[in-house]
Write a protein that binds this DNA or RNA. Sequence first.
DNA 1: CATGAATGAGCGTTCATTCAT
DNA 2: CATGAATGAACGCTCATTCAT
Lengths: 243, 243, 243, 243
Amino acid sequence: MKPAIKEAAGALKKTRLPRQSELPLAKTAQPIGAGSRASSDLPAKKGDRTRLQIKAAARVIFARDGFLNSTIAEIMKEAQRSIGVFYRYYKSKDELLLELTEEFRQKLLQQIHLPLRPNQDPIDNFEEKLGIFWQLYMEDWPIVNSALQMSMVDEAFAKRWHDLRQQGIGAIAHIIGKARKLGYCPTIDPHYAASALCSMLEFTCYNWTSRWGDFAGAKMSKTAAIQTLKQIASHSIAWRSPT
Amino acid sequence: MKPAIKEAAGALKKTRLPRQSELPLAKTAQPIGAGSRASSDLPAKKGDRTRLQIKAAARVIFARDGFLNSTIAEIMKEAQRSIGVFYRYYKSKDELLLELTEEFRQKLLQQIHLPLRPNQDPIDNFEEKLGIFWQLYMEDWPIVNSALQMSMVDEAFAKRWHDLRQQGIGAIAHIIGKARKLGYCPTIDPHYAASALCSMLEFTCYNWTSRWGDFAGAKMSKTAAIQTLKQIASHSIAWRSPT
Amino acid sequence: MKPAIKEAAGALKKTRLPRQSELPLAKTAQPIGAGSRASSDLPAKKGDRTRLQIKAAARVIFARDGFLNSTIAEIMKEAQRSIGVFYRYYKSKDELLLELTEEFRQKLLQQIHLPLRPNQDPIDNFEEKLGIFWQLYMEDWPIVNSALQMSMVDEAFAKRWHDLRQQGIGAIAHIIGKARKLGYCPTIDPHYAASALCSMLEFTCYNWTSRWGDFAGAKMSKTAAIQTLKQIASHSIAWRSPT
Amino acid sequence: MKPAIKEAAGALKKTRLPRQSELPLAKTAQPIGAGSRASSDLPAKKGDRTRLQIKAAARVIFARDGFLNSTIAEIMKEAQRSIGVFYRYYKSKDELLLELTEEFRQKLLQQIHLPLRPNQDPIDNFEEKLGIFWQLYMEDWPIVNSALQMSMVDEAFAKRWHDLRQQGIGAIAHIIGKARKLGYCPTIDPHYAASALCSMLEFTCYNWTSRWGDFAGAKMSKTAAIQTLKQIASHSIAWRSPT
DNA sequence: CATGAATGAGCGTTCATTCAT
DNA sequence: CATGAATGAACGCTCATTCAT
């Protein structure tokens, strides 16, 4: 992972992050919801159990130290296994995060898929989705914050993160488009706005969960938090030109 | 700087970022707008010129590789000087960033100080400030993005960053408070909302400037960008309860 | 370890020698006399063997180059291992020396504990102890000379060394006190004298073992050496006021 | 001076300490007593004055930090001159110490030359010399302690130091020889004993002057100190075989 | 002749990854 | 299949010495 830190810039040369194509995206489609409960309910196969233990340990260590500050050694100590075992399950530290991120992505995509119900205002639908996003972020913040870190530092990872963001942005842009058809926010560029709202969501969640975040210490009220997000996000769209 | 990355977590040991008081804050009062053009207009003294060259080089390298991925060697190669000379001017890579960040902060605080003019709507005032923020971010994004990186990874830096954020959040919360007195956004918590808006600003700017950001490649229109930010931010506040 | 050299002066900043309590004091109780032969008799576990190899290599390199002139790279080359493995066993070059010194100290304290036998003249007892000291110094001179170097250069180390010296000085002062009660050396200050004798022992041993010492080349006779030390040290105490 | 530290061992290769022959031993024969009063009484020529200022500053810095821990920069800051000026007067840091040491040596040799007066007991003569040695050591301890440090670390310096010691040892051995002819200390080897006494003197003086020495803090009484040295040294010789 | 900025080799230390057992 | 010792490239930082001004 020295590489991960050092390798990123296009201008740099030395070590080798796995090429995009080498990465095991497919592998990730494990049963939804299996991610967060790790070591208690033993899955059928021993290997799977170890894999879960590693992931659970990573979560703990990422939460404590952040991704870039954590070491494989530390994670495996938490997982009560030897370092060597790590590489039986993951090709690299990056790949571990990739898998965790992919799980989060799957969960998110599945749960956030809420088609507009008949007669539902798109804004209401948007708020529902916001609630889900917040919920999932709270569950998996050590992973998402880690992904955020890596996306700022590693090119390969940044590209994947960018793709995930694009899905979110696309979805929100779509909603904004719908809203505009209903007369809302006529002067706004749906894509730019979606990008900004996405940033707000992500980074607010980051700042409200990270160790040194805005309200670290004084833990914030969950409902107030989500109310704030919903109000800001929806009012930023749900306005009409004055007449 | 390996330390900087490794030392962050509470569980870990040292840190050697200089105390606030040690920092050359005074030195920062250079003529506004002089910051980013460095190496062309040579200052009187040889030493000062080198300092500027280092800062200019750092800017280039940070923009290209990101802060965590850049090395002192790389910066000094860009500055066309030997590695050793770096340490005549800065105690460490962190301190370099600290100085750059401090300069940005000073610039920001000076320019963003726009007291509410008589009869001016607070929302209008807010929008003016947004414009300035965007402007300065665009000028100094390699530095601000660097600071963002470091704040995610290094405790000492995070604390300083947190303080700067708090100023912004405080100011925005104040504006929101004013707006509420005028009947705007009655149900919103000013502090939470300010935190979220601050996150939006910062992270949107980040995502619109970073190498792998949302519109990398397809460079976005400057005016559209700022229009978007203004609309979102102000509409998220400037609403009234339906009657 | 540049630090070790640079950090010493009161005016200078940090030091990172581990606190006394962190040191593996317990670990030291290895069978007496096993210390200096390391790499031949391989211990059960792989790790322990490496540790011994490192210590043996350090001894060789310290003897050849002196502590301050030796580098971890050189030591590990002698140990036929990679540099990195050093840090699995020791946090720093200082800590390695600390462990070696501590081992020496333990050996010394154990063997030098010779309570005065009934009817034994304290001077005789003193001479016995001198013999033991000489013996151990000869076995471990690369280490003790290293410690001497470090104690001249590094504050933290100097303090530990000072403590060890104090034990010796205290013991000798005690003997001198006893001797005075028997009518010996009435006008002498026991503490000052003990300090001086301790210096004589230490530094004579140093000068008789170091590369560039008094008789380098012309190796001195072991028995003559020890006879000289005994005669000088005991006669300096065992005199009575002329009457 | 990286060299000085690194270069010493015969086995080592890289940098180059000045060959013995290159060193300016002759240059040192300046008027005795000029050494310690530096910056107050200005010598005729400006260059000489600067030279004295540098030496005075070195003394201060060596006393504070020890030789190996001091830097040219620090010395020249104390001397209130630029770094560059140092090299106008000395070829290297080592050469500075060499000159200082040489001055000490000259002073010592001149003052300690006390031929045995008619009817004077050699032991008395020896005690007189001890007093002078102590006196000079106290005046110049920052230099002598520095020389001691360097002699432990640098081959070239060690050789010179060794030569100086040899003179002392030779002289003392001579005295012991005389004493033996008078019936004193018949069983002792004059050379070994002289070496040991020399070590005692040197290292006791070191330990009674160095920052972290035996009585640091509780400053010792000057007369008691010298009485102790005299008693120990002379009694270690001035004994006769029991009849 | 002074200045102090610049040079650059050198060393300590870290940690992802490999591999012998 | 597990273990954890070993590897080694990489990077931050120091400071004696040089040299342009």
